[in-house]
Amino acid sequence: MKSNKQIKDIIYVHKNTDRQYVVSYGINFREFALHTPQPLKSLLLIKHQYEHGAFNIHTHLEYVEQEEMEKITSDNVEGYGDFCWIDFDEEAGVNELNGQEIAELLYMGHLKQPLNAPFYSKLNNRFAYLSHDDGWFNKIYYRDFDDFYEILGSTVASKLGSVKGGKGLFGMKKEKQFPVVGSQIITSFKEKIKEGMIISIEKAIVSRGKIEIPIWVIGDYFNMDEMIEDYQQFSKSPANGLLIFDRKTKNWTSSIR
Rank of each mutant, 00 (worst) to 15 (best):
K2T: 13
I7S: 10
Y12S: 00
H14T: 02
H14G: 04
K15Y: 05
N16M: 08
T17V: 13
D18A: 12
Y21D: 09
V23Y: 02
V23Q: 02
Y25K: 00
I27K: 09
F29S: 12
E31L: 13
H35W: 15
T36Y: 00
Q38P: 00
L40E: 03
H48R: 03
H48P: 07
H48N: 12
Y50R: 15
E51S: 09
A54C: 11
N56Y: 05
I57Y: 04
H58I: 11
H58S: 12
T59A: 08
H60G: 09
H60L: 10
V64P: 00
E65R: 05
M69H: 01
M69N: 01
M69F: 00
I72C: 07
T73A: 09
S74H: 00
S74Q: 10
G79N: 12
Y80V: 04
G81F: 06
G81S: 04
D82K: 10
F83D: 00
F83G: 03
I86H: 00
E90S: 13
E96Y: 14
E101F: 15
I102W: 06
L106S: 11
L106G: 11
Y107P: 11
M108G: 01
G109C: 04
H110K: 09
A117V: 14
P118W: 07
P118Y: 09
F119G: 02
S121P: 14
R126L: 05
F127E: 07
A128G: 11
L130Q: 06
D134N: 09
N138I: 08
D144M: 06
E150T: 15
I151H: 12
I151G: 09
L152S: 09
T155W: 11
V156Q: 04
A157Y: 00
A157E: 06
G161L: 04
G161P: 02
K164E: 15
K167R: 13
G168L: 12
L169E: 05
L169M: 11
K173D: 05
K173F: 08
E175W: 03
Q184R: 07
I185L: 03
I185G: 01
I186Q: 02
I186F: 05
S188K: 09
F189T: 06
F189R: 00
F189K: 05
K190W: 09
K190P: 06
E191H: 13
E191N: 14
K192N: 03
G196R: 08
M197S: 00
I199M: 01
S200M: 02
S200L: 01
S200W: 06
K203A: 13
A204E: 01
A204Q: 05
I205L: 11
S207F: 12
S207L: 12
G209I: 15
G209N: 15
I213N: 00
P214M: 02
I218K: 14
N223P: 14
N223E: 15
E226G: 11
D230C: 06
F234Q: 15
K236A: 10
K236S: 08
P238W: 06
P238S: 10
G241Q: 04
L243D: 05
I244M: 03
I244Q: 00
I244T: 07
F245N: 06
D246M: 04
R247N: 01
T249H: 04
K250S: 11
N251E: 13
N251Q: 11
S255F: 14
I256M: 02
